[in-house]
């Protein structure tokens, strides 16, 4: 049945999907500072798009390590496409992917529902906030402003990297393409015996 580790097929599919999102991440940059209306943090509502590669790749391929690889690959794609943020996207990508991966690991890679991916989105949000804490002195913002900032980022992350990612993969399932990707399950074997 399932072999240990990722095969070339898994890696390649993950990376290809992630690079598509890497391009999205890149064009998301200008959008992000275009909707930044003088610090009222509406921009934080769309921040969640930068977590979506991890959750989508995990839902598609359903194997350990995919979420981290996808987020790192998407960040690399964004970086190589000439991101305005430069090298820092690699750090953000790594920690965001890592926390999403840990959430999936906590459920032992057995759950693929909207609650788990939303939780992974929350994990990525926490990761990004930790880096922001060191990099952006966000603790030095006035408290009401900081609350708005964090709140908006969590809400946006759950909507985009959680619920939207889930509905995206559901739509992809309808095309039948996901059957190529997922490891065979016990149900598949059982259905052969019927």
């Amino acid at each position: 049945m399932q072999t240990k580790g990722l095969k070339l097929t898994d890696v390649l599919t993950t990376v290809v999907v992630a690079i598509v999102f890497g391009i999205v991440y890149k064009v998301w940059g200008p959008l992000y500072y275009a909707v930044k209306p003088l610090g009222l943090h509406l921009d934080q509502l769309i921040y969640g798009m930068w977590f979506i590669a991890a959750t989508v790749a995990y839902l598609l391929i359903r194997k350990p390590g995919v979420a981290l690889l996808a987020e790192v690959a998407a960040a690399s794609g964004e970086f190589l496409a000439g991101s305005e943020w430069g090298l820092e996207v690699l750090f953000y990508g790594f920690v965001q992917g890592l926390l999403a991966e840990l959430v999936f690991a906590a459920f032992r890679y057995k759950r693929f529902d909207v609650a788990v991916v939303s939780l992974a989105a929350v994990g990525s949000t926490i990761a990004s906030l930790v880096v922001d804490f060191y990099k952006g002195y966000i603790d030095q913002l006035a408290w009401w402003n900081l609350t708005l900032f964090i709140g908006a980022r969590f809400v946006g992350a759950i909507i985009i990297a959680g619920v939207f990612a889930y509905s995206l993969v559901k739509a992809l399932e309808a095309t039948g393409v996901t059957q190529l990707l997922r490891p065979t399950t016990k149900e598949d074997y059982d259905s052969l015996d019927k």
């Binding site: 097929t9 390649l12 290809v16 598509v20 995206l168 992809l172």
Partner: peptide, 29 residues
């Protein structure tokens, strides 16, 4: 976004699968 993403992603996945098979055959693993 979905309207754009579904065809692009599904095609990319199919293509990735085909390329992976070819790469495995040529010993890239």
């Amino acid at each position: 976004i979905k309207r754009y993403a579904i065809p692009l992603l599904s095609q990319s996945i199919r293509r990735a699968q085909r390329i992976a098979v070819a790469m495995e055959a040529k010993g890239f693993t």
